[in-house]
Measured scan of single mutants.
Amino acid sequence: VTTYKLVINGKTLKGETTTKAVDAETAEKAFKQYANDNGVDGVWTYDDATKTFTVTEMV
Rank of each mutant, 00 (worst) to 15 (best):
V1K: 10
V1R: 07
V1G: 08
V1T: 08
V1Q: 13
T2V: 09
T2A: 11
T2R: 13
T3L: 12
T3K: 08
T3I: 13
T3G: 04
Y4T: 00
Y4D: 00
Y4C: 01
K5L: 14
K5T: 14
K5S: 05
L6G: 01
L6C: 11
L6T: 01
I8D: 01
N9M: 14
N9D: 15
N9C: 05
G10R: 04
K11M: 13
K11H: 14
T12H: 14
T12C: 08
T12E: 14
L13A: 04
L13R: 02
L13F: 15
K14R: 12
G15W: 15
E16F: 05
T17L: 14
T17H: 15
T18A: 08
T18S: 15
T18R: 06
T19F: 08
K20S: 10
K20T: 12
K20R: 11
K20H: 10
A21R: 03
A21Q: 09
D23L: 07
D23S: 08
D23P: 01
A24L: 11
A24S: 07
A24T: 11
A24I: 13
E25Q: 12
E25M: 09
T26E: 09
T26M: 12
T26V: 07
A27S: 02
A27C: 02
E28P: 00
E28W: 12
E28Q: 11
K29M: 13
K29R: 12
A30R: 06
A30S: 15
F31P: 00
K32N: 06
K32G: 03
Q33T: 10
Q33M: 07
A35M: 07
A35R: 01
A35T: 07
A35D: 01
N36Y: 14
N36Q: 11
N36D: 13
N36C: 08
N36W: 08
D37K: 06
D37C: 04
D37P: 02
N38Y: 13
N38S: 09
N38P: 01
G39K: 12
G39E: 12
V40W: 05
V40A: 05
D41F: 10
G42I: 02
V43R: 10
T45D: 11
Y46H: 02
D47M: 04
D47N: 05
D47C: 05
D48Q: 09
D48P: 10
D48A: 14
A49Y: 09
A49F: 13
A49S: 09
T50W: 05
K51I: 03
T52Y: 02
T52G: 02
T52Q: 10
F53P: 00
V55G: 00
V55F: 04
V55Q: 01
T56H: 13
E57G: 03
E57Y: 05
M58F: 14
V59A: 12
V59E: 10
V59N: 11
